[in-house]
């Protein structure tokens, strides 16, 4: 891709990147703690990944290889745009192959292919505060985190069971990180929650609008909250992926024509394609 002049490497200026890196170091040191940072205006709207893109810009280097996914797919607008953004501003290599990537920026999925040590997963986060639904005051939620007052998190799960007979929260399912901080894992499906536990890769979270960073270092305990008599469960499907036949992946329901016909396919496009032998 042609080089862009007039911009610093990876778009952000060096001072900003240093500020974000300082925040990330603190976030890694205290797993699950939300670290405030001076979020910058990015050339895309809030909610499209401004937090994730700033984290990626702060950590990306010449020799990195970037993969961007949006709900597991490499080929959707958001993923393609952010991938091209870094190809242009940082001239880094990009890939769709999970194994080849050193940095994976993700919007709400964890790749099906197990990550390895040395890889970094960057999450885009809309609302970083898991206690926000019950406590609108920021001063109060910070105090609750500081004092580990997490009883109210179970009130939400209680309400789910009382209303639906089961824990109906299907995404942004709250987790306890390293036995200390309750964290919102960003709106990943709860199907992906177990993958965060003891993951060899570094997981970084950036919330652009709320201006918060947090992290899960490699090999950290991440436990989904639950009740003794209603244990945490992940989603299951009756069918299999209609393209690759996988029965152990997160499936998307896709409408295929205007007659209401639909099919279930893997949400992770790279995983599905490589199972079908189409991987380059």
């Amino acid at each position: 891709m042609s080089e862009l002049t007039g911009y610093n490497f990876a778009y952000l200026d060096e001072q900003t990147k240093r500020m974000i890196r300082r925040g990330l170091l603190k976030a890694v040191a205290v797993p699950g703690l939300q670290v405030p940072f001076g979020g910058r205006e990015m050339p895309l709207p809030y909610g499209w990944g401004t937090g994730g893109i700033q984290v990626t810009a702060a950590i990306i280097g010449d020799d990195d290889c970037l993969k961007v996914i949006d709900q597991g797919a490499d080929d959707t607008t958001n993923a393609v745009s952010i991938r091209r953004f870094f190809a242009k501003t940082a001239q880094v290599a990009t890939t769709e192959v999970t194994e080849d990537a050193s940095i994976i920026q993700t919007r709400h999925r964890i790749p099906e292919t197990p990550l390895v040590s040395g890889q970094i997963l960057v999450y885009q986060v809309p609302i970083p505060e898991p206690l926000r639904f019950i406590e609108p005051r920021e001063t109060e939620t910070r105090k609750m985190h500081a004092l580990s007052e997490y009883g109210v998190m179970h009130v939400k799960l209680y309400e789910d069971i009382a209303q639906f007979g089961q824990i109906a929260t299907a995404y942004a399912y709250p987790v306890m990180v390293n036995g200390r901080y309750v964290m919102d894992p960003s709106p990943i499906p709860k199907f992906d929650n177990p993958k965060m536990h003891q993951n060899p890769a570094l997981q970084l979270f950036g919330a652009g609008r709320e201006k918060r960073l947090y992290a899960v270092p490699p090999y950290t305990d991440v436990v989904s909250l639950d009740f003794e008599d209603h244990p945490f469960e992940i989603q299951r499907w009756d069918g299999v992926c209609e393209l690759c036949g996988a029965d152990d992946t997160f499936l998307d329901e896709v409408v295929v024509d205007d007659q209401g016909a639909r099919m279930f396919v893997c949400s992770d496009t790279h995983h599905c394609r490589s199972r079908r032998g189409e991987d380059a």
Binding site: G151, V152, V155, Y158
Partner: peptide, 11 residues
């Protein structure tokens, strides 16, 4: 809420 606040975890 108060029960869960003091650690009760059985629905």
């Amino acid at each position: 809420e108060r029960l869960m606040g003091v650690g009760e975890r059985h629905y």
